[in-house]
């Protein structure tokens, strides 16, 4: 995954302690272009670890990390290291960005950079307010996804759902006359060869089912 951006016009280049400053400035200026974040660590150790965030009318669209080759929210996670950062901000024509912006795997929800990089919920809200409606819907999906991730991480809850489903499957199998086709049906299996499942199901001597 590579991202090729035209260089554009350099608006500012400075070292900031908080990447939120750059995000906030981009929003207030309605920046269309991109910002390159280079953590001070990378400056010191000459490591290849720059993050690129593109903007449309001040609202973040894509995130990409050159060191890890990650995109989207994962790129933000890679970039979220203690500052200070060197930040270069470039302005571009929207037309120059449209091709790059058609890269779903790199997209971020509008408020996410403010939340993840700056830890600034107020800035995230302000960014969402400025974002087009369809982009905010994507942000909501991200919030949903956090809830979904938490749900899946709760192993005991998931196991309870599965256990209940197993019991229900068994009860219903009895009710529908499918009990003999359950995988652990106690009926003898004629020939436990490669086609074991078929053999289990092919027991023609079953009593009539109800």
């Amino acid at each position: 995954m590579t991202v090729t951006l035209p260089r554009g016009r350099l608006l500012r280049s400075r070292v900031v302690s908080d990447p939120g400053t750059a995000l906030s400035t981009a929003l207030d200026r309605g920046l269309t272009g991109y910002a390159v974040f280079e953590p001070r660590d990378a400056l010191l150790f000459d490591a290849d670890g720059r993050g690129v965030i593109t903007f449309e009318d001040g609202v973040p669209v894509l995130a990409y990390h050159t060191g890890t080759d990650e995109g989207g929210a994962a790129a933000l996670a890679d970039l979220a290291v203690p500052g200070p950062y060197s930040v270069d901000v470039f302005e571009l024509d929207a037309s120059a960005l449209s091709a790059v912006h058609d890269t779903p795997e790199l997209r971020v929800a509008p408020g996410l950079p403010a939340e993840r990089l700056a830890g600034d919920p107020a800035l995230a809200d302000r960014t969402r307010s400025a974002a087009p409606e369809d982009r905010v819907a994507a942000d909501d999906a991200t919030a949903d996804a956090n809830t979904v991730a938490a749900f899946l991480a709760d192993e005991s809850k998931v196991e309870a759902i599965r256990e209940q489903a197993r019991e229900e499957a068994r009860d219903r199998a009895e009710e529908w006359g499918l009990a003999d086709e359950l995988a652990d049906s106690p009926r003898p299996v004629a020939d436990a060869g490669d086609d074991q499942r078929g053999d289990e199901r092919a027991d023609e001597d079953d009593p009539q089912r109800h």
């Binding site: 989207g72 929210a73 779903p104 997209r107 999906a141 991200t142």
Partner: peptide, 14 residues
Amino acid sequence: VRDEAAVDRIADRT
């Protein structure tokens, strides 16, 4: 799917 990155985060568990 509206947020592919969000799915990436739950894919392993799923």
